[in-house]
Design a protein around this nucleic acid. Structure first.
Lengths: 334, 334
DNA sequence: CTGAAAGCGCTTACAG
DNA sequence: CTGAAAGCGCTTACAG
């Protein structure tokens, strides 16, 4: 690369110290009482030479990079892609850039990611924590690294987080199906100890119990890695063609979409032969014929709040803020 | 944040110079002939103190950050999310982290993004260039900043790029519809001067001309901002219910999905009432009943090649590499 | 009003 | 075999 122009170059050209030019370029000429004419001359030559501050040098000196790390499960997953976009927008408004990484719900990858971003001196983290990463988050707390968890959190830890009211989400989803007359309602969830999943399962269970449908409770927990095969097995075991008709609540967006693949493959008619509530609406729910019902998260609000809280931490606020937002059930034909 | 341990701390504890500890921690004890026992002691205390190198300091000194900038149109768009993921994977293998930004196909945003990433001293860029950003890319060339363009490029510029053979993509897509017996074939594209779009349009036109269907050529160019409304207008004007039946080739993934919304709204039967070829397959094409045909890009290969070329540039290779990859037409019921 | 100087945490040519 | 020292490009307390 071409040599960049530095403060030294400007100072050299004008025969002044680099301190003054740093002052005026940072708008401190008033406080430092720099001569008005000198100030304009400095600004002019900075312009001429097309001076661009070296953020790395600045970061080293200031011990802050104006950079945040965003760790999601998978940036290619539209849910996390959306999240990333909202975070990017919000961060941009405050002069922050974002470095991202995908953990694949894997604790080892998560640890590597956190460490490399830490070494790169990010000012803070927004993290969708994977299973088995309590220690990593605990470490951030110990080191006093600003961070906010999103989508999930660890109840035993005192971190800031912003999440969905997951219990309410599946509780309402299940009730919706019950109100439509379904009785034989199953849930497809991930096999994980993470709280968001446990809460979604709990909401489903409670709704079933409240309606005396305990005998129909049937929750299949599939693995992250083999999810499609596991889902097929779980759905195959449903007695779709018997009465009362079956219905399924899916616990995440990816799970719902996999479910749709199975439904298509088996040529099932929704909602006639199978009740359906998905999670985190995507095109597929809209474009399905007829359109499908799903639980909607306020993703933009989640992202906005997460960044806002993170910024407070970065600025020194030590108090944890824990926010739970309300889901919305988008009711359509299923 | 807690104070991090530095080379100085290790050196202090052992009563040696920071130079030696830098040497052994960088595996240069052989070249620098550091005593074997000292080396193990240094490694030990580095371990004990949990030393983590400060990449910012390292970057300042080395004038390289091991960071690349990735600029896409919109990270929330699954096509670009996928791209980002593949780039992330590839970069990770070589110790690079990626900072991303979304340009929204907007030249101003693109310029801001490029500048802030430049100030953050990224070692290079992978860019999906927006319309009107020739000057920005030219600037990178002038400054000798390593970069590779992706998805589109500027023919008048000598940059590395890796793109799809866009001409072939829509040429084959159109021919496929012709072979299925469609005659009245339209294209929906974006209203942009960017080459990838011009090539997709050209491929459509050529296929039509080659089959003496010039009179049926009908290409609607919609705007990025109002794409859905524009698409509806364009599709409304098609005479779907007349003979010969109409067919549409969509020039991007987002366009195709918008088209599906219109198709659903108007309750059109594909392919019975309307021929359809989409771009960049997503779930929606799979889940449509019956599944839809589309042009598939080798996204992983594009990403891998783009990073590989970028890395070569970063390492000093001044020669531009320009790659065009073959699309695949995934033929299903439409 | 202005500048010399220290220091952020590293790497590396150089001297012994 | 080992260390003192310069320097990457900034910011800022301090002295005049």
């Amino acid at each position: 690369m071409e040599k960049r122009v530095s403060l030294k170059d400007i100072a050299g050209k004008l025969g002044v110290s680099i301190a003054v030019v740093s002052y005026v370029l940072n708008g401190q000429e008033k406080e430092k009482r720099v001569g008005a004419d000198l100030a304009v001359k400095i600004r002019q030559t900075a312009e001429e030479l097309n001076y661009q501050p070296n953020q790395i040098a600045r970061s080293l000196r200031m011990k802050s990079t104006n950079t945040i790390g965003l760790i999601v499960a998978d940036i290619a997953n539209p849910f996390f892609g959306q999240l990333a976009r909202y975070v990017e927008n919000e961060a941009g408004k405050f002069g922050y850039t974002v470095i991202f990484g995908s953990s694949d719900e894997n604790a080892i990858k998560s640890e590597n990611l956190i460490n490399t971003l830490l070494n790169r001196q990010v000012d803070g983290f927004i993290i969708v924590p994977a299973e088995g990463t309590v220690g990593q988050i605990q470490n951030l707390i110990k080191k006093n690294v600003p961070h906010v968890l999103v989508d999930r959190f660890f109840p035993e830890l005192n971190s800031s987080y912003v999440i969905l009211d997951n219990y309410a989400a599946s509780f309402h989803a299940t009730n919706h199906l019950i109100n439509k007359g379904f009785i034989n309602i199953s849930m497809i969830a991930y096999n994980t100890s993470l709280i968001h999943m446990k809460e979604r399962i709990r909401g489903y269970m409670e709704a079933m119990k409240n309606n005396n449908l305990t005998q129909y409770i049937n929750c299949s927990e599939v693995s992250f890695e083999e999810s499609y095969d596991d889902i097929c097995l779980a759905l195959d075991s449903l007695k779709i063609d018997s009465m009362p008709h079956a219905a399924v609540v899916f616990a995440t967006s990816a799970l719902s979409v996999s479910g749709l693949y199975w439904i298509q493959k088996n040529n099932i008619k929704v909602p006639l032969e199978l009740g359906f509530v998905g999670f985190d609406g995507g095109e597929s729910f809209d474009l399905y014929n007829p359109p499908l019902s799903f639980v909607q998260q306020p993703l933009e609000e989640i992202s906005r709040e997460a960044f806002r809280i993170l910024l407070n931490h970065i600025k020194g606020d030590e108090n944890c803020t824990q926010i739970q937002l309300k889901p919305e059930l988008i009711v359509r034909s299923s």
